[in-house]
Nucleic acid binder design. Structure first.
Lengths: 182, 182
DNA sequence: GCCAGCTGTCAACAGTCGATGACATAGGCT
DNA sequence: AGCCTATGTCATCGACTGTTGACAGCTGGC
């Protein structure tokens, strides 16, 4: 019980949290297993034992659950607000999203993971409010929020960084509404 | 004159072209100087002699000139078409943009270069057609096209990949118009 | 014809990385 | 208490990286 108890599950969780921070801040290639292990105060070999490989660690660290609500019956005027709220929550509560976004630019595995998020989470949720061309609409909504997140969290373009959640909602709302309903 | 003439300028150009292809396809970290040199059939040390370092090579390879036209007096209905046309040209005529986009996700140098493109090319061009909140509007237009490019060329989201230039224009047009004029 | 300098090569270094397998230690169960 | 397994460490391997300095060969000007 003194200091670190020998609790494999807790160590695994710590490693995943550290991996998320590193992947989100530095991308896939610049993140080293040694650094992640060091953050937790553990040997790098343990990471390999627990997750098999660096790719295995990433896959486990960056699995993303958007938890999009059921949009059936949501009024058109409320749609964008609900979506933007949810995306902001995903972006800022956890490092998973940023880890996935940064890595997706250079890793085919991560890009595939991102496509899967689109296909299994975004598209089905939006299908409830669009009657035609659902895949295109979902892709355009995704591109919109990805572009915003890229500019705000990765490129750090000043006007996007300084924007409040409400301002972002006011700007993105009509665009999302257009992609979903026009 | 047989085979490769000993022409330093031509070799430099070949190296830059090869570097653009590699950076665009694999990102900054996965691109090795040895591979770029190998593509041209030259020793890796020569790359260092010509460009100083890997970062120097990247900077020279990924300098981007959008050549945005003067938008003064362009009718509101034509604005989006002009912009989308120009961006498609930049995306598909050269690998510079993709190299910069991919690298910007993991390299602070590349992110800074991207911010500079925003500040010195996009924002001034758009300032001609917006009267207030020009920086925000420019940033949102940038985020829109970046998000689209990310989905289409990097993540390869099927609906975006399959979209024709005209379809993209039809979808993006109203969104850009909103960001610029509303 | 020959030398000087531009163009390019070669070998190597110093560091880092992911991954492996042998080894140590702690702690619960009997 | 004593053992057995889960947990974690250590040393090391082999490959690859950016970068450097010494060297080689071609070519144009005197």
């Amino acid at each position: 019980m003194p200091g670190r108890a020998r609790d494999a599950d807790a160590t695994r969780d710590d490693l995943l949290a550290a991996a998320r921070r590193r992947f989100a801040a530095e991308g896939y290639e610049r993140t080293t297993i040694r650094a992640v292990a060091g953050d937790v105060g553990v040997d790098a070999a343990l990471v390999i034992r627990y997750f098999g490989s660096k790719e295995g660690l990433f896959t486990r660290a960056a699995d993303l659950d958007l938890q999009l609500p059921d949009l059936t019956g949501v009024r058109a005027g409320e749609l964008a607000k609900v979506l933007v709220d949810r995306f902001f929550a995903v972006w800022e509560d956890d490092d998973r999203f940023l880890a996935l976004l940064r890595a997706a630019a250079t890793s085919e595995v991560a890009a595939e993971a991102m496509r899967t998020v689109f296909a299994t989470q975004v598209a089905p949720a939006l299908a409830a409010v669009t009657d035609d061309r659902a895949p295109e609409r979902a892709a355009l909504v995704g591109a919109t929020v990805l572009g915003f997140a890229l500019g705000r969290y990765v490129l750090r373009v000043p006007p996007l960084v300084d924007m409040t959640r409400d301002q972002a909602q006011a700007w993105l709302g009509p665009a999302l509404r257009h992609y979903l309903l026009d």
